[in-house]
Design a protein around this nucleic acid. Structure first.
Lengths: 120, 120
DNA sequence: GTAAAATCTGACATCAATGTCAGGTTCAAG
DNA sequence: CTTGAACCTGACATTGATGTCAGATTTTAC
């Protein structure tokens, strides 16, 4: 598929898709004319990238992480270096804190929303 | 307490504390010389503000939300307008999505970390 | 072949919280 | 009184992903 379709199917802008490629997170073939052609699996890949961004990982870290994931087709993947494991563990802990904080914020919102509902 | 102590106790920079005040999220008395003097409860307030920022709320929304929270001392608080309730409900839903996304990202990291551990 | 739609590259803009720095003032301790 | 630490205001810089635009090229439909 070309970039427009991938953008539509993932909800990610074309601009961002080109940026992901520039950052080495996403690969594409090129048509003879030079336009990007994506495999079907790019859809899941893009969604994953977005989720990792939302989790606060930066491009560089995502770029290190992605090759170490088990491919869905069981293809070869890189081995995570000890340094990467250390850094990913830190990220995981940070995400745990983030989830806990989010739960607290959610409770705050919920309390205000509920209080307003009770006053109707 | 003055700004330095509040910064130290909350882990938030003095710069940010002044910014919060500028945004109307945090109040302070002033000494005769013009320096900020904070009440003890400012500590919890600052931590709450940070959590709401982390949850993706912007200054404006936090500024609308805070007065509608029940004060710990049961003091008077503003009533949430229907528009605010609508917007807070949307934020809450967004936070729910965010938590779900974070859980997925966490699982991805965990899988890579675990796989590396198994290879030792 | 032609026109419209899609894509390309490259550059510049944006956002919002925070960092940083300069020059001046206030506070606390000797 | 003096000195150093803490604080003040105001301004400018930073960050990193994304928006946006211009001008050129490719693809698709007729």
């Amino acid at each position: 598929m070309r970039i427009g379709e991938l953008a539509r199917r993932t909800g990610v802008s074309e601009r961002s898709l080109r940026y992901y490629e520039e950052q080495g997170l996403l690969v594409s073939e090129r048509t003879p004319g030079g336009q990007r052609e994506y495999a079907e699996r790019a859809v899941d890949r893009v969604i994953l990238i977005q989720e990792l961004y939302a989790a606060g990982l930066h491009s560089k870290k995502i770029g290190e992480l992605l090759p170490c994931m088990r491919d869905p087709d069981g293809g070869p993947n890189e081995r995570a270096t000890p340094e990467l494991v250390t850094s990913l563990t830190a990220e995981r802990d940070r995400i745990d804190h983030m989830i806990a904080d989010l739960a607290r914020s959610r409770a705050v919102l919920d309390e205000v929303i509920s209080a307003a509902a009770r006053e109707l």
